[in-house]
Each structure stands twice: as C-alpha cells, then as structure tokens.
C-alpha cells in the first residue's frame, strides 16, 4: 500500500516534468513514513481561512497554495505570526495581491493555514543522493544560519540509532540540544526517530535526489518534534 502510493506520487511528478514536489505531495510522502508535520488546512477564501485559523488557534501561518510557485516566500506568498481574525483578513488580501503581481498566470488553489509551531531548537534534516555512494543523510543546526555556520554531520544511508547519536554528538551545537545554560533539553529521541525514518525514505525512493526538512522544530523532552517546512527534489533514477 505504502509502496504503491509512493510510486504513484513520484511517477506522476516525473511524468509532468516536475523536479520539485508540491507541498501536498511532500505531505503525503512524509506522512507515509510517519514523519510528524504540522496540521495544514487548505482554505479557498478569506473567510474559510479565518474559520480554520480559529479551529487551529492563533497565531497561524498562511502559505500560498499553488503548484506553479516554487519559491513561495520570494513572491510574498508566506506570512507568519498572524494573531487575529482582522490581521488574517488583511494578510490574506496582501498575499493574493503580491502573488498575482509577482506570478501572473500562476494557478492558485487558495492558502494553507497552519498553526505557528515554536520549538526549543531548530534543526535541519536532509537527504542528498551522492553519485557514487547513494543517499546521504544530513543533520545540522537549522534555521537561518544553517549555511553560514555549516554545523552539520553526514552519514551514508542506511543509518542505525547509534549512528544518529554519533552524528548529534559531532555537532558543535550539540550542547544547545541538551539544555545549554538553562534552556530546556529537547526531545532527542523524537529527532533520532525522525532521522531514521528519513533514512528509510531515502532508500525507498531512488528518485529522491535532495530533500530538506528545515526547520525541524524540536520540542522539550517527551513532546516530540515537527518538520515545519519541507522540500523534495526528484530526478529520474539512472538505469545501469
């Protein structure tokens, strides 16, 4: 069942000539592997969005929902920290105007409404397919400084629990995860579990060439972690 579903998603995307999977496709694939994601509801109108936000609880995030738009933030399609019904109505209108101006002709399905997820720490969990060694899993301190600080650790897939633990300990920022100067220790078990699932996903999907789960929000011990944003890139696997 899982196998059928994931094959279908990849085949459809490849057939339509896309290399970037849509958020919906990502959600479906990641969910198949039990990777925790924030709830996400599709609203087609401003009032629908308000309803959903009330259901999820403020503050919320709005993201433009369109298969045609790759870099959503670049076109003003993502807004975070929306605190009230009034603010939401205004932001909704601004997003639509900005997207229409920057991407005229893009098909727009509506907006995705998500709760604002906060965490104790942000990390990145990623996959890259190396031409000679196959899928490589990456773990690093996430957020905006990820490329600047390059505090990351890599392993060839598959990885076992001990490997992930070793990867974590290699990070210079490891103390930050373990309760540094009064911050709360994060749920490392949940992060290890997520990393193992990512490794499995990479092995199962030969078409997956790159993936970012960034940021993955780490909650306090026992409260899990959530992949807040995700990006999956596929290429047709080479046949030997």
């Amino acid at each position: 069942m899982r196998e059928e579903r994931r094959t279908k998603i990849i085949e459809q995307a490849l057939a339509s000539g896309r290399s970037l999977l849509t958020p919906q496709e990502c959600v479906e694939l990641l969910s198949l592997y039990g990777i925790p994601l924030p709830p996400s509801l599709l609203a087609k109108t401003s009032s629908e969005a308000t309803e959903m936000a009330a259901k999820l609880g403020f503050p919320v995030v709005l993201k433009i929902a369109s298969d045609d738009i790759v870099h959503k933030s670049d076109v003003g399609g993502v807004r975070v920290g929306i605190n009230s019904k009034e603010e939401l109505e205004m932001v909704y209108a601004e997003i639509m105007a900005s997207v229409k101006k920057n991407c005229p002709g893009a098909r727009i399905e509506g907006v995705l409404v998500q709760p604002m997820i906060k965490g104790v720490q942000e990390v990145i969990v990623g996959i890259k397919r190396d031409p000679s060694f196959g899928p490589v899993v990456l773990l690093g301190l996430g957020g905006v400084w990820v490329e600047l600080l390059r505090d990351v650790s890599l392993r060839i897939c598959p990885v076992a629990r001990d490997d992930v633990l070793e990867m974590l300990k290699e990070l210079k920022g490891y103390p930050l995860l373990n309760g540094y100067r009064g911050s709360k220790p994060v749920d490392l078990e949940a992060l290890i579990d997520l990393t193992l699932k990512v490794s499995q996903l990479a092995l199962d999907l030969p078409a997956l060439s790159e993936m970012d789960l960034n940021p993955v929000m780490l909650q306090e011990q026992g409260k899990g972690c959530i992949a807040v944003d995700y990006r999956m890139i596929i290429t047709k696997p080479e046949v030997d």
Binding site: L20, K128, E147, I156, E210, D212, I233
Partner: peptide, 15 residues
C-alpha cells in the same frame, strides 16, 4: 545545488 540547503552542505569531501 541551488535547490536545497542539504545539496549545498553535503559536498563531495563531506560525503
């Protein structure tokens, strides 16, 4: 890689 952070961070020697 411009497509992902991971692509950028996982260079040949890091692998």
């Amino acid at each position: 890689s411009v497509a992902s952070h991971t692509g950028n961070l996982a260079g040949q020697y890091e692998v």
